[in-house]
């Protein structure tokens, strides 16, 4: 199975997706993220999709569901680095992603998480 690194820095879990994930690998990653939250707890989750070249209906749904489940476990999610071509395609596909918080990069993602959770993730990272 394709392994995706799950990092914990301060109060934040960071998941940089570095390869194209097939459907089972995406499900596996979702499960591992939730396990990690359960084990170590986190106020924020950042999923970095900066090198992901396409997000289709399946991957989109995995991202939305992961964020929903993380929230139920007390963790806010921000998806960072979505390419503009990916965003335009998702919109045309008809996938509703309004429930997702997004930011341009990890730095902006952390700023957004601070606002969402009222904490200071930046400080806990540095």
């Amino acid at each position: 199975m394709i392994e995706v690194t799950i990092l914990k820095i301060g109060d934040t879990i960071i998941v940089p997706i570095q390869t194209e994930l097939h459907d089972l690998a995406a499900n596996f990653l979702q499960e591992n993220i939730l396990k990690k939250i359960e084990k170590v707890g986190a106020r924020g989750l950042i999923i970095d999709v900066g090198v992901v070249t396409i997000i289709d209906s399946f991957m989109g749904r995995v991202l939305v569901d992961t964020a929903k489940m993380a929230r139920l476990m007390g963790t806010e999610t921000v998806i960072v680095g979505m390419k503009k071509e990916v965003v335009m395609t998702l919109l045309q596909l008809g996938l509703m992603m309004q429930t997702l918080h997004t930011a341009l990069n990890i730095e902006d993602g952390i700023t957004l998480l601070n606002r969402l959770t009222g904490g200071n993730h930046e400080r806990s990272i540095i």
């Binding site: 396409i54 997000i55 399946f58 390419k83």
Partner: peptide, 28 residues
């Protein structure tokens, strides 16, 4: 399947947006 479609589109000089759209359709 996605990779093969993308490779051909790249070699034909399709725009990144056209590639992304087509490859997403291929995936579905």
């Amino acid at each position: 399947a996605r990779q093969k479609a993308r490779e051909l589109m790249q070699s034909m000089g399709f725009s990144l947006l056209a590639q992304t759209r087509m490859v997403t359709a291929v995936s579905e």
